[in-house]
Design a protein around this nucleic acid. Structure first.
Lengths: 203, 203
DNA sequence: ACCTGAACACCGTTCAAGT
DNA sequence: ACCTGAACACCGTTCAAGT
């Protein structure tokens, strides 16, 4: 049974639970309006709790983001697995990339956190990001195997493209983000001619 | 005669000029090591001047960046014009894109400022960025006209790609930046087959 | 078990007062 | 003409003291 709000991991005292949920609600509203870098102090203020109460529930900004977005990210990963059944390996990959970018666009400034969380094992978002990356990996591998994507395209390439395009969109326009994503995806496509260009080799 | 340091626009009192140059030197060092978001207060401290002295010379962070990078950006624009003589329109475009990305990589976190400066006419970096964009425009137009680039590729697309790839590199690795740029540029290439894909239409 | 609020060490920006 | 340094309004994070 899904309550709609992400549940804290264990039973909490009634007042604690109430504070936890008010903090989440205010954070969602504030991040949505002002971006993921919005002042945590101000969020606590709006939730009507003291400074330290926020840190008690969410020791870092990333922990707060994980509580807000963890489920959504796992859903994105599931969507990726489902798209493995898409009739066209490349179109399935492209459709998922667009969904992933829409996810990054949820809060302004999210891209940097999501990019760093992949490498940073101490990040509370690390596990969720890894799941998303793994879903991308499946789609990329399938497109490569089908000869639809270049043999050297990797999941980190896809992940970076999605977040970078989302970032560019934040600086200029949502349309620019879509265009950049489309160009990048087209660069992932296996060339029908045999003419390869100079791609820096893989990590 | 080039003195090596960017010259302030008018004659200054000797002490003012000395402060101006110490501030520039400390800013260059600090931005180089810690990124373009480094504390201005700390830069003033390191330069041995008071807080307000920095603001007297450079009313905004962007003004400081312009003093540090304006010349470099105009040089980049010139390089772009020279590359119009490159035998291959597409390779000339690609070479310039790589040079532009190297420029963005000068200080961490520069990409956002450079992206915003294009749209923000009040930015002290606006003029310099416009010159860079115009150089890109020339190269893109030539590649389009030669049938080497897709007919719908624009200078803003190129500008966004360069900065977004540089941004991605800052979050993960320089190699990832190069790869993203290469994929994006390949997406700019006119497809040898007639098969067009769904590109969101232009601004 | 959880909450409070002060404490600490920072920011960017402005501006009166000096020389 | 330029510089100083205090003033103002903010941050994130920690932690002793309370209930």
């Amino acid at each position: 049974m899904d309550t709609g709000t992400p549940a804290p991991r264990r039973r909490m005292r009634a007042d604690a639970r109430r504070n936890y949920e008010r903090l989440l609600a205010e954070a969602a509203a504030a991040f949505g309006e002002h971006g993921a870098d919005f002042s945590l102090e101000e969020i606590a203020r709006r939730a009507g709790v003291a400074n330290g109460t926020l840190y008690g529930h969410f020791p870092t900004r990333r922990a707060l983001l994980e509580a807000l977005m963890g489920d959504r990210m796992r859903t994105l990963a599931t969507t990726g697995e489902e798209l493995l059944a898409h009739p066209s390996p490349f179109d399935g990959l492209a459709a998922w990339a667009r969904a992933a970018m829409a996810h990054t666009t949820l809060y302004r400034g999210l891209g940097a956190t999501l990019m760093q969380a992949i490498e940073d094992e101490t990040s509370e978002l690390h596990t969720a990001c890894k799941a998303v990356l793994a879903a991308g990996e499946g789609l990329v591998a399938r497109a490569r195997a089908a000869g639809a994507a270049r043999p050297d395209v990797t999941a980190p390439d896809l992940y970076a493209l999605v977040n970078a395009a989302a970032w560019a969109g934040e600086q200029s326009s949502a349309l620019q983000a879509e265009r950049l994503l489309a160009f990048g995806l087209d660069g992932f496509r296996a060339s029908t001619t045999g003419a390869d260009d100079h791609m820096p080799s893989q990590r």
